[in-house]
């Protein structure tokens, strides 16, 4: 009982810090995802038209993905120094793969017969992309964005090591001062954010699934 009391006291007394870091956390996550989407979606569309090169591009992003996140931050510090930029670059690199792969797969998995029908009816490549391939691959794309978002919200906790703030800061302070309540006050919001985004984006995924292919 007592520990719960301490936990709530911590939240109240450290309110300002937690709120400020949470906002930073959200800001970093959003920015990273937004930029990753802006890079991956067009790239995914592009490589779906150059299938021979596709595996190569996806391979590169997959290599980045295998680097442990902490190590990736570490590699970037000597190049970019310390600060928000370094954190953002690492986060973006990390978020690329799920979005790129899902965009690409979503587009190339559209049934050949459907594309052929579109071509046969005299649709231009642009019309085929906009009216057939994109609508049909949107659910895949959204699933990729969801995976990337959940991942990013977690990885942002490491941003504190390159001085970019976020809730990782709260957790780290708690760890250094042997203050479990503070650790939890940082960790629980991160978990809640991840769950929340997962839920919201899943709803969105359902919304964008074209009516005719909902099973």
């Amino acid at each position: 009982m007592e520990s719960i009391q301490i936990f709530f006291d911590t939240i109240v007394t450290r309110q300002d810090l937690i709120v400020e870091r949470a906002i930073e956390h959200l800001y970093l996550s959003f920015l990273a995802i937004a930029i990753a989407v802006l890079i991956s979606v067009p790239l995914g569309i592009y490589i779906s038209r150059k299938r021979k090169m596709a595996e190569f591009y996806i391979g590169i992003t997959a290599v980045f993905q295998t680097i442990p996140s902490l190590a990736l931050f570490g590699f970037l510090v000597p190049i970019l120094g310390i600060g928000t930029l370094t954190a953002l670059v690492a986060l973006i690199i990390y978020a690329l793969l799920p979005i790129l792969r899902n965009t690409y797969t979503g587009i190339i998995e559209v049934d050949e017969g459907i594309i052929e029908a579109g071509e046969g009816m005299g649709m231009t490549p642009r019309q085929i992309l906009l009216k057939i391939q994109l609508p049909l691959s949107l659910p895949f794309m959204m699933a990729g964005i969801r995976t990337a978002t959940v991942l990013t919200v977690g990885v942002v906790t490491l941003a504190t090591f390159v001085g970019a703030g976020g809730l990782g800061d709260v957790i780290w302070r708690g760890l250094q001062s042997w203050n479990n309540s503070l650790v939890l006050a940082g960790a629980i919001p991160v978990a809640l954010m991840a769950l929340f985004f997962d839920f919201v984006l899943k709803l969105l995924e359902k919304r964008v699934t074209p009516k005719g292919i909902k099973s």
Binding site: I114, G120, I132, I213
Partner: peptide, 15 residues
Amino acid sequence: RNIGYVIQRIGLLPH
């Protein structure tokens, strides 16, 4: 656009 085409695999747009 001036040649109707019925493909072997039907190919209706599901959405």
